[in-house]
Simulated assay, not measured.
Amino acid sequence: MDAISEDEMMPGTPKRTMSRRTVIGAGLITAAAVGAGYRVASHQRFDGSELFVRDAFEAAQVGDVVLVDIRTPEEWRQTGVGQGAHPIDMRRSDFIAALDCLTGARKHAPIALICARGVRSARLARALVNAGYTNIVNVPEGMLGSRAGPGWIASGLPVTSYDG
């Protein structure tokens, strides 16, 4: 079958035919546009404070920030957790409760978020600000590096193994 008539797709419309190639091409263009839109939306930057990985490490060591690694347990097992970071999987249903446990439920406590490449941490940072947290910091380089920089591991910062 080489052609699909529009009345087969939408009854009651004037009959015109489109080649299968046109239909497939239009579908691919639409899918590409939607995909590009998602990529742009999913890589938006966090408008708040950001730290380079070395600064995040140093701030966590002296207690200036609570550094939270929001990746998954599988990711922690693969690469380890940045020394001084608290691993809390952002998908946990009790994520806020676990975060509040670390900070004494202080919404103004300085909290730095790190993930693999800065995408999830930026998204979660925006969500936490919208939830009333006032001192959220993103680490956009992440553990593995991003456009923002080489990342924790490539920067040679210490990691601790995760066995959980």
Rank of each mutant, 00 (worst) to 15 (best):
M18P: 00
E58S: 01
R77S: 14
V137I: 15
A125T: 02
T22A: 12
R77I: 06
Q83F: 14
G80S: 06
Q44T: 14
A109P: 05
R147H: 03
V81T: 00
A105H: 09
A32P: 00
L128I: 11
T17D: 11
R147Y: 12
V53W: 00
T72G: 12
M10C: 11
D7Y: 10
V53N: 00
G156N: 03
S161C: 05
L157M: 13
P140F: 02
S121P: 05
Y162P: 11
R106L: 06
I4K: 03
A125K: 04
A125Q: 08
W152D: 06
V137M: 08
P140Y: 01
L157E: 08
G132P: 08
R126I: 09
A3D: 08
I136F: 03
G132W: 14
V68E: 00
R45G: 15
S161G: 12
V23C: 05
G149Q: 05
V139G: 02
G12I: 02
N138D: 13
P150A: 14
D69G: 09
V129Y: 03
I136V: 12
L28N: 07
A41Y: 06
V129N: 03
A41I: 04
V66R: 04
F95I: 08
C101Q: 09
H108M: 11
A148W: 08
V139C: 03
K107S: 13
I136P: 00
S146R: 04
A60D: 12
K15M: 10
E8R: 13
A41F: 11
T134W: 03
A36F: 10
V137Y: 02
A112C: 01
A116C: 08
L144G: 07
L102A: 12
A56K: 02
M1W: 04
E6P: 01
I24A: 14
S161K: 11
G82V: 05
L113I: 08
L128G: 03
I29W: 02
R91K: 07
I24D: 02
A59L: 07
